[in-house]
């Protein structure tokens, strides 16, 4: 009996040690490439959302939930991650709808253009952040690259064991918990790099989106319809990767057929005041804070006018949550703008 108890205790000790080591070597994404922590951050939310925005960097760098709250009383969250495949978007939506039913889901259609599995690193950043559920299993199976294995998602030690040689102080600092890295999924950038000499897209042999992509978009549309959620398709005003007219026409036809709203922000960028010399931080790929403010204003107007979302200002609990979030956002924004200004002044002096 004594031997059995010792054996059981030793097995437990082994398991705990392995889990603890696994946590240690798994990247925390608390600094540097913080995008890896964004998907997991959603689970810290305590409120239900009116709007969920889903997609890749064209979403999480282009819309500001804090502005939607402050200016429209809309409680929103961006479930975005770098190079999010459309299959991942579907499963992230499915995962979110397990616990809440927003009025509107906004999906950026850029990911329709590719269905092949391209990057293990981006996969990890998206999939590892998801909580274990059938949606996560589905997302892993649908999108992991050939070099990946399902087991390495279950036991991250199998993937990150070599990090034991490259541990950083942050691996210990953020061992138990990672501080918020985004603002309801928004990734703030305040620097400016104007778009210059953006090349035209090269002609393609075939402009059709992969069948696989349509399948996932259908599933997203069906899921939203089942839950009574309005799905809005958008194309962010990114100047590259090039968004072809042929692609746009296909999405437009699809939206019309399904009765969905589709907004190509590239077309209306001028109309809503996007200035590519001041509103982007990387030459036209992503919006900076100033561009994001303009896009958010347009989306807020659309949500209230076309989708009749009511302001939830006055809901005490929500107000309290947002007071804290807004304070943090405004503080960080002011600090980032000041730092950027200082940097610009320094460069001007040099």
């Amino acid at each position: 009996m004594k031997k059995t108890i010792i054996a059981v205790l030793l097995v437990l000790l082994s398991l705990v040690s392995l889990i603890a080591l696994s946590r240690l070597v798994t990247p925390k994404y608390a600094d540097g490439i913080i995008e890896g922590a964004m998907i997991a951050e959603y689970y810290k939310e305590t409120t239900d959302h009116d709007v969920l925005l889903i997609g890749d960097c064209e979403v999480y760098e282009n819309f500001i939930p804090a502005d939607l709250w402050n200016n429209y009383g809309i409680n929103s969250y961006i479930r975005g991650s770098a190079e999010q495949y459309i299959a991942q978007s579907y499963y992230i939506l499915e995962d979110s709808l397990r616990t809440e039913t927003p009025s509107v889901v906004v999906f950026n259609v850029q990911s329709l253009s590719f269905s092949e599995k391209r990057s293990e690193a981006y996969n990890r950043m998206t999939l590892e952040g998801m909580r274990w559920s059938p949606s996560k299993v589905g997302a892993i199976l649908a999108t992991m690259t050939e070099e990946e294995s399902f087991a390495s998602y279950v036991f991250p030690l199998l993937r990150y064991h070599e990090r034991i040689f490259d541990l950083k102080p942050t691996d210990f600092t953020y061992y138990f918990s990672v501080p918020p890295v985004s603002y309801n999924g928004y990734y703030m950038r305040v620097d400016v790099r104007p778009a210059e000499n953006v090349p035209e897209g090269k002609p393609l042999a075939d402009y059709s989106f992969p069948e696989e992509s349509w399948k996932w978009l259908d599933r997203m549309a069906d899921l939203c319809r089942e839950k009574g959620i309005d799905l809005i398709l958008i194309k962010a005003p990114s100047l590259y990767p090039y968004w072809y007219g042929e692609w746009d026409a296909q999405v437009r036809d699809y939206a019309e057929e399904k009765g969905l709203t589709y907004i190509n922000y590239l077309e209306i960028a001028g109309q809503i005041g996007i200035d590519y010399s001041t509103d982007t931080y990387d030459g036209g790929l992503h919006m900076n804070l100033y561009g994001a403010e303009k896009l958010t204003a347009h989306l807020g107007d659309l949500l209230t006018s076309e989708f009749h979302l009511k302001s939830r200002r006055g809901e005490e609990a929500l107000e309290a949550v947002w007071a804290e979030k807004t304070a943090r956002f405004e503080n960080d924004k002011a600090a980032a703008v000041a730092a950027e200004q200082e940097k610009a002044n320094g460069e001007a002096t040099d």
Binding site: A7, L10, S14, S17, L18, L21, E120, E147, E148, S152, L157, L158, R159, H161, E162, I164
Partner: peptide, 21 residues
Amino acid sequence: CWAVIFGFTLAVLLLGAYGIG
């Protein structure tokens, strides 16, 4: 026995040449 088994298992998991790359 546990120390030997767990020690080598840990060595394999942490120092093993496996996985991506």
